[in-house]
Design a protein around this nucleic acid. Structure first.
Lengths: 348, 348
DNA sequence: CATAGATGCTAATACGTATTAGCACGGCGG
DNA sequence: CCGCCGTGCTAATACGTATTAGCATCTATG
């Protein structure tokens, strides 16, 4: 219970097999270069001793010597397993775990990072990033300064979600929100909608910018295409605004807001999509009870997780040429909330 | 992009501050023993250089030299983030993460462990356990042989859930199923139930054994107390069996089976708890839709996660004296499925 | 002025692995 | 018999930190 019993080392194996520690290392790593030659009998002898002792190389020493760990860091800007954002992070982690298992890497969650001003910080006194070969960054918003510093340090990382605010190029695996929103806008136009409103949350996050850009581009030919901001609590006000504007379809960034909007409409005796079409622009990030299947799209979170590991391993071993930035397509969800506008409403 | 840029080391700091590497290490670790003395000015100078360079000690080298890492391993016998057992592991991980954050440890998920015969194995060729200071073991069932080997290696670990099959003592943080089941049995007896049936799943897992033991002990004074096994699919057969036996209350180990049993009873026009009381002995591990609140208990999963980290850190630094085994109390859930037996049914 | 003790620091080494230069040995051609 | 080459291995070193013995230097004391 006091000092842990010293583990078996290559030196022990070497002594037992009557060779040098270097030979053990060479055999272990199956080195068969032209430069390095080991007689088959010697090799077998060493392997036999290894098998007998159940020796396993110390990963720490291995890492110190060779600089690679097969550890992938995962940095979440919020706790990874909270009840609140549970549905947000979980699919990413699922994909990350799956791919990490496939490539034989372990996952290091940086839970030790201290929380300052309600969010974790990568860089702090006892920065432990270097424990891993590279790192996956998860979070709704990631401070540009930290990305900048990662770039400066030459530390391999990948952000999940598009990022552009690092004062330099950022490797990422994101979802192609612009294209998905554009396709939904086009669908609405085909349905005959002429006055469209984008109901957003904020302007800062890249994911919001991309959605807004997709909306603006695709809706350019519409009679009216405007953007407003709203929260779930203000659903009634938002609804007033939509009706006053004569909008027949709302593209709602936040899922909970869409649910609230539909409820508000129903309370007033309006039908969806008869009187108002509602399109959602992302999966729920917090659990929202509703029986309605909203028209919108699905963010390929699991696949984003998988590909972020793939990209990261490429960045780490240098096999990935150039900057790695991927945008994955979102699958559209048919749903029941996008329809043909009622002419009575459309004509204001 | 090829070789990682060499990072700042203590040697660099030492050169800049005009001291030796040893001094840097001593300052960093805040060593103020009687044996070791550093002049305040020197200390400040070193600290200033450290702050300027943003130096952070390489945890790998630190670990190699001192054996401690502040990394807690998490080994899950099934993937940690599957859709299926999602509701099973998640609360544990939540508690683990919370406590790890509190004590400043990072979490290493051993995703690299290869899967053999449908489950992961700790021990294999390139065992990476030593990357962490110690390890938390999660899984419905954990092979005794692996626990045995961990014991033999003197590797610090804690199992989540009681374990006894290691051919030696196993440190664990479990739930006190025996006590919880006993209290439910006593409640049933107070309600007037005389013929009780335990509907179990299997006999192997310790968690099943504990529940059965608690049942057997507490039901010793009942007119009849028997144990049967059943699956959710066989709910009708099970119900037949209960009625034939004249049992007025069923203690059902598996949540899904309890749901199926209640549904079967309702289909036959029986009421719960009027004609039959049903008590559940654990939270759902897979999502089962039901509106009924079953009488039973709640497994303190989150707290088990927290305390497993607490116990492990104690085992690692040796501050925990002796064997660490904790059983946490389960909170009873009042529910609506335990009532007074109908005399007509009770008297068979 | 010699000596003892306190103070402030450094040199040396350990941790366990990977890598590389090069040694020892044997066979072969000249 | 000498030089050369191919084979099979080892000695030495690096990786970055923690630890410990002990070396200077200075102050106080007899």
């Amino acid at each position: 219970m006091t000092a842990p019993p010293r583990r078996v080392t290559q030196r022990d194996i070497a002594r037992m097999a009557g060779v040098s520690q270097a030979t053990v290392s060479l055999v272990l790593n199956n080195r068969t270069d032209a430069e390095v030659r080991i007689a088959p009998e010697t090799r077998d002898r060493v392997l036999r001793v290894i098998a007998e002792t159940g020796y396993a190389a110390d990963p720490v020493a291995r890492r110190l010597a060779s600089r690679f760990n097969r550890i992938i860091g995962v940095f979440t800007y919020e706790p990874a397993f909270p009840s609140g954002s549970r549905d947000f992070f979980h699919p990413f982690l699922l994909g990350i775990e799956e791919y990490a298992e496939r490539v034989g890497c372990d996952l290091l969650l940086f839970t030790s990072a201290p929380v300052v001003d309600g969010r974790r910080r990568i860089f702090h006194q006892d920065n432990r990033l270097r424990l891993a070969d590279g790192c996956i960054l998860l979070g709704r918003e990631i401070p540009g300064a930290e990305l900048h510093r990662l770039n400066g340090d030459g530390y391999p990382y990948v952000a999940v979600g598009r990022r552009d605010d690092a004062g330099g190029p950022v490797p990422y695996v994101g979802a192609d929100y612009a294209a998905a929103v554009a396709r939904l806008v086009e669908a609405a136009l085909r349905h005959g909608h002429r006055r469209l409103t984008y109901v957003g949350m904020g302007m800062t996050a890249e994911s919001s910018q991309d959605r807004r850009a997709g909306f603006a581009t695709a809706a350019a030919t519409a009679e009216s295409a405007r953007q407003v901001s709203a929260a779930p609590q203000a659903a009634d006000t938002t609804l007033d605004d939509l009706l006053a504007d004569g909008s027949t379809v709302a593209f709602v960034e936040d899922f909970a807001t869409a649910v609230a909007l539909e409820a508000a409409a129903r309370r007033r005796g309006l039908t969806v999509p008869g009187d108002l079409s509602i399109v959602t622009l992302g999966d729920p990030t917090v659990p929202v009870p509703t029986d309605i299947v909203f028209t919108g799209f699905r963010i390929p979170r699991e696949e984003m997780g998988r590909q972020s590991v793939e990209v990261l391993t490429g960045v780490i071993d240098g096999s990935a040429g150039g900057l790695q930035q991927r945008l994955l397509p979102c699958e559209l969800v048919e749903g029941s909330t996008l329809g043909t506008p009622d002419p009575a409403v459309d004509r204001r």
